[in-house]
Design a protein around this nucleic acid. Sequence first.
DNA 1: GGTATCTTATTGTCCGACAATCCGACAAGC
DNA 2: GCTTGTCGGATTGTCGGACAATAAGATACC
Lengths: 250, 250
Amino acid sequence: MFEALRYAPAYLRVSEAIRARILSRELLEGQALPTETELARQFEVNRSTVREALRKLESNGLLGRRRGGKRLFVTRPTRESVGGGLSQAFALHRARVVDVWEALQAVQPGIAAAAAERRSSAALELLEATVERFAARKGERELAVGDVAGFFDALGEAGANPVFTLLNEPLLRLLKPSLAVIIDRVPQARSRIESAQKQIVAAVRARDARTAAEWMTRHVRDFRRGYEVAGIPLSTEVGEELDAAVPGFS
Amino acid sequence: MFEALRYAPAYLRVSEAIRARILSRELLEGQALPTETELARQFEVNRSTVREALRKLESNGLLGRRRGGKRLFVTRPTRESVGGGLSQAFALHRARVVDVWEALQAVQPGIAAAAAERRSSAALELLEATVERFAARKGERELAVGDVAGFFDALGEAGANPVFTLLNEPLLRLLKPSLAVIIDRVPQARSRIESAQKQIVAAVRARDARTAAEWMTRHVRDFRRGYEVAGIPLSTEVGEELDAAVPGFS
DNA sequence: GGTATCTTATTGTCCGACAATCCGACAAGC
DNA sequence: GCTTGTCGGATTGTCGGACAATAAGATACC
């Protein structure tokens, strides 16, 4: 009958006020925030209260500081901070490798198609460099995994769609641990990945969206085969390892 | 040459410590956190410092409180809190409606296929109820938009893939405003949406993943036509309206 | 059993303080 | 001119203590 009437503590109202100013672009990226004391004066609250509000915005990725700096600056959520938060959420929702794989299968062909349609020549070069790097890599499991993630990243970047770029990161993050196992245990994994990447890049260079998407579909399906061959149960829960870095502070 | 040596302020170390305990499942969902004073005692820091740490975890959606409650409880990020943060990030990265549409086009067919493969009968009923609700709706633009979002939501739920569920929310959130315009301005929009939903649900009931995905592809393509007919430029930036609710506090 | 009442514990907010250190300016030296 | 040393001020990180409002738990009552 009646709606619960909300009383919002001051620290929330302060953080909301600042957030609104950022989203409305009154505060622009890169701009320095007033000092805590000044904010306290303007909002007519205590500095401690302001600080609580700032911590919220900080972990939302809306505020950050320059390396070793003191003052806070307006920033927008980076791939890393978004990715950290999201993959953390996935893990807590007990997502399994098969869930992540399924999402990859849905998303990546679209990303590949977008990349093929819109890649700039600079993005193409970057993409090719990534492929070369992976192909040249011998051993060094961890670095090879990084290269594969770098390939997907570069592809997302080439598509010039911020939605794809931001969604890509957390999926890759969750993919990595299991990918490392695959590369270790499946002998032909590297060569299969390499050839798939080359086909995809060729299609991207030719601006052939359909072929890019098709090869990507095959590529992702291969990962699933990889899980099976490597003996990774599809129902393994993806877990955040130690590398759950502090989002928004690095 | 040298790596920057990092010093982490106490409030960050505290929040990291607690986060780690949550991610490692030592602290379980629903469990109450010790009181601020107790935490301060254990970490040997001041209560203000603890509070700053708690605010961070609060906006990450890892801590929350029961309606009108005082104590903090361990929670996992809800769809809403994740969605709020993500759509905020998209907006700040100046995503355009075409970007969101492209992402929908990539993701939704996969979701539909997953739903067809794994839907429970309960989920199917919910889905059908949603479709009925939208079909029966006359006028009431906002509610109709909510119904459409509810359809995608129910579909995601039916797929029983937390990754899809969490990714779906922010996309829908960004879709809504433009969808409202389409429903207003394109006369045949409602009937086209309704028939597409019915085809999709039929395929889901028949557990026919391929057909479900195909109809979904058409359905999403239709939205693009809708943009054109409604005169919404595809390069419009999606913006967070006032409804940018406080994530993790509602 | 359920409900009203009372106590206590806990949170939200404030004030004031201080050390560490980042910032900017300015001077000195090659 | 550009780097390096010096210095004062501004700003953050952290602390201690305080108090009102109110949720939570216990207790008495019907």
